[in-house]
């Protein structure tokens, strides 16, 4: 095989390796019982412990959007309620899932990759395997499960807190009252939006955890390799979130 052909086929090799990893993670139901505790641990770490940072980011993005929308759109023709009409759907459709996704790509993605990478280079993964455990299921399934269960939860929190942040700034900054904001948000509300946002969160949760697991699980090259995997996990999670965001928007909207 020539070098250029190898180079050309590399992405497919990676895709295949990644898919098989995910496949093996879930196709070993025999000792699933043992993973229950792990899954709860990961849900705790990935989900519950991420609430503060997600809340912070969501509150600020809601607040900033409110201020900027008022700056951009308010004119004699438009009532103040238009701010609510823009901020709430932005939060629900785009900012909620994507801000949560980016924050967690850094927080959760890097953490997963560092954990698994360290386990790889210190032979802990080999130790699991040598004991007769399915290390892929044992390590990866709980993390992905925790991701796809807890991300939608974080998304809901992000939306609620983001809209709350918007309302707070609207009131404090004198842009519009809570009633106007809520009125605006209600006028242009489509019930499909939150479900769309929820599906985004679900997909992003899967992307971040699975990509980071891949990066971490196949770490090579000692401490430096762990550092590389950690960075890659955060960066690639963000890239795939953006791609998935577009694909979902094109296919579902």
């Amino acid at each position: 095989m020539t070098y250029s052909l190898t180079w050309f086929l590399r992405p497919f090799t990676i895709l295949g390796k990644y898919s098989l990893l995910i496949f093996h993670a879930f196709v070993s139901p025999d000792d699933f019982r043992t993973y229950r505790k792990n899954t709860f641990n990961q849900m705790m770490r990935i989900g519950v412990e991420s609430i503060p940072i997600v809340a912070l980011a969501a509150a600020f993005s809601g607040a900033v959007t409110t201020v900027q929308v008022s700056y951009q759109l308010v004119s004699v023709f438009l009532p103040a309620t238009v701010i609510g009409s823009v901020v709430a759907p932005s939060m629900i459709l785009e900012l909620g899932p994507v801000v949560t996704g980016f924050i967690l790509a850094g927080r959760v993605g890097a953490r997963i990759a560092a954990e698994l990478g360290t386990m790889r280079v210190t032979e802990q993964i080999d130790a699991l395997e040598a004991m007769g455990l399915n290390s892929i299921s044992y390590l990866i399934a709980p993390r992905i499960l925790a991701g796809i269960i807890m991300f939608p939860m974080l998304y809901v929190a992000a939306c609620a807190i983001g809209i709350g942040g918007g309302i707070t700034v609207a009131n404090l900054g004198g842009y519009l009252t809570t009633q106007e904001f809520v009125q605006g948000a209600q006028d242009f509300f489509r019930p499909f939006d939150p479900y769309f946002g929820l599906s985004k969160a679900f997909v992003f949760g899967f992307i971040i955890t699975s990509v980071s697991c891949y990066m971490g699980y196949f770490t090579a090259g000692g401490a430096e390799g762990v550092g590389k995997s950690t960075t890659q996990a955060a960066v690639m999670s963000c890239v795939f979130i953006l791609i998935a965001d577009l694909v979902l928007a094109v296919t579902l909207l």
Partner: peptide, 24 residues
């Protein structure tokens, strides 16, 4: 099969060079 391999592995105890203790 992988399942059978894991059953065989349970007959083994392996002490790794660095210990490979689970640090969590």
């Amino acid at each position: 099969s992988y399942k059978e391999l894991r059953r065989i592995r349970r007959k083994f105890g392996v002490l790794f060079q660095g210990g490979a203790l689970f640090d969590s």
